[in-house]
Computed example of a mutant assay.
Amino acid sequence: MFSELDAGACGITCAKLGEAEIMADAGIDDILLAFPIWGEPKLRRLAALRERARVRVSLDSPEIAAVPGVEVVGLLTLAGHAYHARTPEELAETARREGEDLVRTAELCAKDGIELREISVGSTPTARHAAGVAGVTEIRPGTYIFNDTSMIRLGVAAERTAAARVLSTVIARSTPERVVFDAGTKCLTSDGAGSPGWIRAAGLPYVRMDFLNEEHGVARLEPGHEHELPVGTRAQLIPSHACSVVNMFDVAHGVENGRVTTELRVAARGAVR
């Protein structure tokens, strides 16, 4: 199967040691842990992992400077506030600032004798813009692999490019305008709950998701569509946050032209330690 490494990616970013261990098992030998590591058990696992791969860890606490053997090789940021951008212009400006501010910080460090080789930036919304900032050496987009309604809202994806979808079935029609799907927070999570368009039914623009409970998604139909989506109808629900949704499933299925073409085990599911 064609992978990101085949396309030119040189490594991967993980949040937890458990994820990094699974990536090393898969043969990836350049790993960034964008999460502080603390405690003897985890440090022992980190040491063992470094026997198999080149591993770097991001830190943001001054206390770490006292640890023997720590070498600062670069600066890292994630422009999480970019997710609140209201226009494409605002998003582009946030991305530019993300890169330029970090490059400037590295220049100030150099004046104090601290040379930094790596300038690492980029959430999925900002990566395309930040990659063009002079001095940036690395971008770390992640959600772009699948995309979701958050990316659609920000204009960096469209419904046709949103690959993360939960196949759901209509199981109840208690009133003409109400539709109940068999996918709730255990499938779609509660991320983004209640915001406009947070769950999107692909190809069905007249469906508006109202709320989720654990097992059900309750939506309403716009006027004029009350006779559509009878019980038994299947719909592809695009989630608000692809990352957490993938972690809810043991297996993902690849679909092309309406046919299942591959089955992928979600190897890092639940690897939160």
Rank of each mutant, 00 (worst) to 15 (best):
F2Y: 08
E4N: 09
L5M: 12
D6F: 08
D6I: 08
A7P: 04
C10S: 10
G11P: 00
C14S: 09
K16L: 12
L17I: 15
G18H: 04
G18P: 05
A24R: 00
A24E: 06
D29S: 07
I31N: 04
L32I: 10
L32C: 05
L33P: 04
F35R: 02
I37D: 07
G39K: 03
P41G: 07
K42D: 14
A48E: 15
L49H: 05
L49Y: 05
E51G: 04
A53N: 06
A53R: 03
A53W: 04
V55K: 00
R56D: 09
R56M: 14
L59K: 03
L59W: 09
S61H: 15
A65D: 13
A65I: 12
A66P: 00
V67W: 08
P68D: 10
G69L: 11
E71V: 13
V73S: 05
L75M: 10
T87Q: 09
L91H: 01
L91P: 01
A95E: 04
G99L: 06
L102F: 05
E107V: 00
L108A: 13
A110H: 08
G113R: 02
I114D: 04
E115L: 08
L116E: 07
S120F: 03
G122F: 03
S123L: 05
P125Q: 06
T126E: 06
A127Y: 04
H129I: 13
A130K: 02
G142Q: 05
S150Y: 02
L154M: 09
G155V: 08
V156A: 01
V156M: 00
A163V: 06
R165S: 10
S168T: 15
S174G: 08
K186M: 13
K186P: 02
L188P: 00
T189S: 13
D191H: 09
W198A: 02
P205C: 06
D210E: 14
N213S: 15
E214G: 13
A219M: 01
R220L: 13
L221T: 06
G224R: 03
P230M: 11
R234M: 13
P239W: 07
H241S: 12
A242F: 02
A242K: 03
C243A: 12
C243E: 12
M248Y: 03
V251I: 15
E256W: 13
E256M: 14
R259E: 15
R259G: 06
E263P: 00
R265E: 15
V266D: 07
A271D: 08
A271H: 06
R273G: 14
R273V: 12
R273T: 12
